[in-house]
Simulated assay, not measured.
Amino acid sequence: MFDFFKKKNKGLEVEAAVDGELIPITDVKDDVFSTKMLGDGYAIKPTSGEVHSPVEGDISTLFPTKHAIGIKTKEGLEILVHLGIDTVELEGSPFEMRIQKGDHVTAGQILGTMDLKQITDSGRDDSVIVVYTNMDLIDSISPVQKGSITSGDKVQTINFKKN
Rank of each mutant, 00 (worst) to 15 (best):
D3V: 00
K7F: 08
K8W: 11
V18Q: 03
G20P: 01
E21Y: 11
L22A: 08
I23V: 12
P24W: 09
T26K: 11
V28E: 08
V28L: 12
V28W: 14
D30G: 13
F33I: 07
F33N: 11
T35P: 04
G39H: 04
G41P: 03
K45W: 07
K45R: 12
P46N: 10
S48T: 08
V51I: 15
H52D: 01
H52M: 08
L62M: 12
P64F: 08
K66E: 15
A68S: 15
L77P: 07
L83N: 10
G84R: 07
G84I: 09
G84L: 09
S93D: 13
I99W: 04
Q100I: 02
K101S: 12
K101E: 15
V105G: 08
V105N: 12
V105H: 13
T106H: 05
T106P: 00
A107G: 02
Q109T: 06
L111G: 01
M114T: 03
D115A: 03
K117L: 10
Q118C: 03
Q118H: 10
I119N: 05
R124T: 03
S127T: 02
V130C: 00
V130M: 00
N134K: 01
D139P: 04
D139S: 14
I141R: 09
K146Q: 03
S148K: 04
S148Q: 10
I149D: 13
G152L: 10
D153A: 12
K154N: 14
Q156V: 15
K161W: 00
K162W: 00
K162H: 06
